[in-house]
Design a protein around this nucleic acid. Structure first.
Length: 687
RNA sequence: GCGAGAGUGGCGGAACUGGCAGACGCGCUGGACUUAGGAUCCAGUGGGUAACUCCGUAGGGGUUCAACUCCCCUCUCUCGCACCA
């Protein structure tokens, strides 16, 4: 899966290193944002494309992943199925192999285009100056351009001779570096045909087209229409396509693919945009690529017993980028593990993403210096217990980097028999980024809000609480200091409640079994209900979607109720203490320092962090009365407090007796009454 | 162009499977206590209206007793990929 090849690679001149395709963002380096250039180098690659199909297929298993990330990965892999077909070159013992996903439009091909750097280009092109001109002027593809080679290709479907162009928009890296051009059914080809006055032949008519002409007008100039103003790229019915005329495109694709294979002029193929992963980096800080180059034996892997290769420590950093390993003679010069002769170490290190592709597996193993392979294979392996990761959290920026590489690594490790699962992360939460002045907050951009002055003014707990309260985690957050005050006030209020009443609160204790005691006052039991409801809400909000913002909001509601609670009896004080304690427990993950401090102020001797997370009692949490919403024709007209456990008929009767309802209904006929249990009544009346 | 997501008060955001739109917080308005208030507390706060009530979840249609939520069309924004044949 690891191989070395000489090729054009992405090169960051500022970092003085190679970058993977995934690390180039809008033609810029992912780390320093310098413009990336292409450089021809011999580099190490990992054959991630061997796993393209599995990486794609298993996307469907990633149920706990956001749709967006899955879409990005599928898109990145970029699978397309089609055919490769050979077009003979007229008067030459050569052919051009083209790739197309639309073999149903083969009869509409009116010219062929090959890439500027296609192997045949030099051969076919007599006008060397013109070619150079094209390369220099239009190599960047700002505008579609091409030149006629003077040669023609023979369309194997109908024997037609069509011109061969060299075109700047044809990519050598994808497919075969050559295409058939069907201007009637591909907009790019259409634009090109317009520019160079090439013929346009319609071979697909939309399915809604009135009675497609079947089998008529074969060959010759028939079907050549110049009237159309844009390409029709959709599905339809074939016309002017010989024996295939009259077929629907989907069926025709199948039949024509079969025809091509039967005739031996081409075959079905699958193409991916996905490229192999270049992992060589000209950096010091990375895992050395464990390879030795021997003058006699060539490339020799460092034997397992000599692993890991340790980076030398006494190297000179010049601060100009590039790897200092290149100048460390001690590191470079070594012996060949095979013949013992003079050899040289690889000085490139691995892409940082190689390490991060499997660290989560290593993290499961507690022991320090271990034989990793045997540890993984052991049946008692902690990896078996912990993996796959239940919940992974990271930024969206890893969608086609870390998250793709890790999926690849896990599959490779599985195929090596080291692990027995295929996907590393069951659930994925892509948390939003903090945005400042329209850009992602980052050190390199310098648009960072220094939290220190806010911490000095309000404390770390306030800042944390506010950050969690501001937005749900998956959302981007445009940072603003506004609102920090609110979190601060909230904590201060709770603080005040505890310290103002600490004498009374300290001496009381709440006995859970007293919940039905007749001593419990009405407002006391209301507070207890709210407390249990809050425990439930906070717990489920955290567990369900990590929605800390609504969890904090629920906590604020509880504290509001606590603040307005006026204890009278001893039992009231006990209820208050219970509520305050629960509130502190619920608060402890969000504002640990304040929670711990107040916990102690209540007279507790041990840390709040040694307490269990509180449970709620569904019975106590239940409202004893519900507010019934009364609608007439779907519009809110009245509300009614009703006790629990009342029948639908009774609810109906109560609603109809409501004076407001009576006014509105008047003499009109009641068509229907809909009762939604415990919630609402809707009375439908006639006009 | 393709793919994904989003659009709710002045602002950040709530609303679980269709069932009270605007929870909670910021801000704002008025009041109390105050030498003072940028502290605290109380009341109010989607819009129009004196009020009944009406209008409101980007816009337009539809389904439904009932739509922020479901369906169709349109617009805007964000992100990803992109002459990928």
């Amino acid at each position: 899966l690891a191989y070395r090849k000489y090729s054009f690679v992405n090169w960051c001149p500022s970092c003085v290193t190679v970058l993977a395709n995934e690390q180039v963002i809008d033609e810029r380096c992912w780390r320093c944002e310098s413009i990336v250039v292409q450089k021809e180098l011999e580099q190490w690659f990992l054959k991630i494309t061997d796993y393209a199909e599995e990486l794609l297929q298993r996307c469907d298993e990633l149920e706990g992943w956001p749709e967006r990330v899955i879409a990005m990965q599928k898109n990145w892999i970029g699978k397309s199925t089609g055919v490769e077909v050979d077009f003979k070159i007229d008067g030459m013992d050569e052919h051009i192999r083209i790739f197309t996903t639309r073999q149903d439009t083969l009869f509409g091909a009116t010219f062929v285009c090959i890439a500027l750097i296609h192997p045949l280009t030099e051969k076919l092109f007599s006008d060397k100056d013109g070619l150079e001109n094209l390369k220099t002027r239009y190599g960047r593809m700002d505008e579609k351009s091409g030149l006629f080679t003077g040669f023609r290709a023979i369309n194997p479907m109908n024997g037609e001779k069509i011109p061969i162009y060299v075109a700047n928009f044809v990519l050598m890296e994808y497919g075969t570096g050559a295409i058939m051009s069907v201007p009637a059914h591909d907009q790019r080809d259409f634009d090109f045909a317009q520019k160079y006055s090439l013929p346009v032949r319609v071979v697909i008519v939309p399915p809604t087209h009135p009675s497609p002409p079947r089998g008529e007008g074969e060959g010759g100039g028939e079907g050549l229409l110049s009237a159309i103003t844009e390409a029709y790229e959709g599905e339809g019915v074939l016309v002017h396509s010989g024996q295939f005329s009259g077929l629907k495109s989907a069926i025709a694709r199948e039949r024509i693919a079969q025809f091509i294979e039967d005739k031996g002029i081409g075959k079905r193929v699958v193409n991916y945009k996905f490229r192999d992963w270049g992992i060589s980096r000209q950096r010091y800080w990375g895992t050395p690529i464990p390879v030795i180059y021997c003058e006699k034996c060539g490339i020799v892997p460092v034997p397992e017993k000599d692993l890991p290769v340790i980076l030398p420590e006494n190297v000179k950093f010049k601060g100009k980028g590039g790897s200092p390993l290149l100048e460390s003679e001690k590191f470079i010069n070594t012996e060949c593990p095979v013949c013992g002769g003079k050899a040289r170490r690889e000085t490139d290190t691995m892409d940082t993403f190689v390490d991060s592709s499997w660290y989560f597996i290593r993290y499961c193993l507690r022991k320090g210096n271990i034989d990793l392979a045997s540890a993984l294979r052991s049946l008692e392996s902690e990896v078996r217990y912990w993996m796959p990761v239940d919940q992974y959290i990271g930024g969206i920026e890893h969608a086609v980097l870390h998250l793709l590489y890790s999926r690849f690594f896990v599959k490779v490790m599985r195929d090596l028999g080291l692990i027995d699962f295929s996907e590393p992360f069951k659930n994925l939460l892509t948390q939003g980024m903090v945005i400042k002045d329209g850009a992602k907050m980052s050190k390199s951009k310098g648009n960072v809000v220094d939290p220190n002055h806010l911490i000095q003014k309000y404390g770390a707990d306030t800042l944390r609480l506010f950050s969690l309260f501001a937005a749900p985690p998956e959302k981007d957050l445009e940072w603003s200091d506004k609102g920090v005050e609110g979190a601060y006030r909230f904590l201060k209020r709770l603080w005040g409640i505890v310290y103002k009443n600490s004498d009374k609160l300290r001496v009381t204790s709440y006995e859970y079994k007293d919940k039905n005691s007749s001593l419990i006052t009405h407002h006391s039991s209301q507070l207890l209900r709210k407390t249990h409801q809050t425990i439930k809400r906070v717990t489920t909000d955290i567990e369900r979607e990590y929605h800390f913002n609504t969890a904090v909001a629920a906590l604020m509601e509880l504290v509001n109720e606590i603040a307005s609670f006026k204890p009278g009896t001893h039992e009231d004080w006990a209820s208050l203490r219970f509520s305050v304690e629960r509130a502190l427990l619920l608060l402890s993950p969000f504002a640990p320092h304040v929670a711990e401090e107040l916990w102690e102020a209540l007279g507790n001797k041990s840390s709040i962090f040694e307490e269990r997370w509180p449970d709620w009692d569904e019975e106590i949490a239940k409202e004893e009365r519900i507010e019934l919403v009364i609608q007439v024709n779907g519009k809110l007209r009245s509300k009614l407090l009703i006790p629990l456990g009342i029948t639908d008929d009774e609810i109906k009767e109560m609603a109809l007796q409501e004076s407001k309802v009576k006014d509105i209904v008047g003499r009109k006929t009641i068509k229907k009454v809909i009762v939604v249990k415990g919630k609402l009544v809707n009375i439908v009346i006639g006009g």
